[in-house]
Design a protein around this nucleic acid. Structure first.
Lengths: 200, 200
DNA sequence: AAAGTGAGTAAATGATTACTCACTTTATCC
DNA sequence: GGATAAAGTGAGTAATCATTTACTCACTTT
């Protein structure tokens, strides 16, 4: 149980985490400020002391996601001995992140669905682009090192990498159990590596 | 331009197509009955002459999707000479369907995000399950025929197949151009086949 | 031409939404 | 231990939502 009166920064942080927790349970675009406040044992009005608007709160959530995900991925990549091993640990790091924070892919997809080019949507787009570039760079390095087949289409391999995670998320959405992701991730990763690896 | 007074069945059909057209442009869960009516040059109230509730309309949309998609896929599979060729044409048929109806994957994902087990959500779940079973059956047949590697995990290969399409959809959402799917589909398919094919 | 039918209209309904604000409570520093 | 600024309350607001209803219109049947 958190204290009743929190310093502003801490309250903002708790709010962001609450939004992500709710996003794990329901359609993110249907999360109301009333629901957020209730979950935090706070009144609705208090939220607007810390965020000027709901969109600003959503932006803060996307910032949180971008920072944490990329940081986790860079750490995973840094320890890897080679490009292929880096892709492997990047995949598992991402999958682990999604299992810990099931609301994240749902928020991301929800934002991408939006029509207007709002700040949170642009942040979601920017994050996925940055992510894709990271994958692409590793794939290119893998080709240079001879670990990744020279004749594969890098754009397609990047799309497939992202889709691989998406497929896992979709399965967990179907079954309603996020743990399914950690269970199936290694087998799906093995298949992905089969697709891109150069053959002896 | 459609006539002002349509027979009920035709009006229902036009309504479903209008919802899918709107879903291609905006977050499906933010589509209002007012927006649907406006697009059809009809008043809001008229919609409720043909559907008892918004949820009933959504159910009709999911019915439309399930029928059309599965029919298209079964036709594509039927003409194929073998399991691997069937998977190939299933993939391309699905990709083609999504390009023609970009609102479809967005509606599907939107429904899966929902918390409550509503009728349209259950239909979306049922469709994806049925789809997955179809893929699995083809993969199993492929293994029996020696076209698909015997040592791969069928569940993972099914998840990856669905994820492959998802990845393409994600890319098109990012770029905002559905045609991107048809352009990238063959290369991504080639990679998928590399992952599952048995090696000579 | 009168009666009936099916499709659409226009305005209302109550519920829900994000957001505001005058006021109260709390933590913290002197 | 009292002052004060920060944090939270609670009762608003206007806008928007799905749904309902009394009514009109175009057309067909009698």
């Amino acid at each position: 149980m958190t204290a009743r009166y929190l310093p502003a920064e801490e309250r903002r942080s708790v709010t962001v985490e609450t939004v992500l927790a709710l996003a794990a349970e329901q359609n993110p675009s249907e999360i109301t400020t009333a629901a957020i406040a209730e979950r935090m044992h706070l009144t609705q009005g208090a939220l607007f002391r810390h965020f000027p608007s709901k969109e600003a709160l959503w932006t803060a959530v996307m910032e949180w996601v971008a920072e944490r995900l990329m940081q986790r991925i860079e750490r995973a990549v840094a320890d890897a001995p080679g490009p292929l091993a880096a892709l492997r640990s990047m995949f598992l790091a991402h999958a682990g992140f999604v299992v810990e924070h099931p609301g994240v892919p749902r928020m991301m997809f929800g934002e991408l669905q939006r029509a207007e080019a709002s700040a949170p949507k642009r942040m979601a787009q920017a994050l996925i682009r940055r992510y894709g570039e990271r994958v692409r760079a590793l794939l290119a390095a893998g080709q240079a090192a001879g670990e990744v087949a020279a004749d594969i289409d890098l754009d397609a391999a990047t799309t497939l990498f992202i889709g691989t995670i998406q497929g896992l998320v979709m399965q967990s959405l179907l079954a309603g159990e996020p743990e399914r992701i950690s269970r199936e991730a290694p087998a799906v990763l093995a298949l992905y590596l089969r697709a891109i690896r150069s053959h002896p």
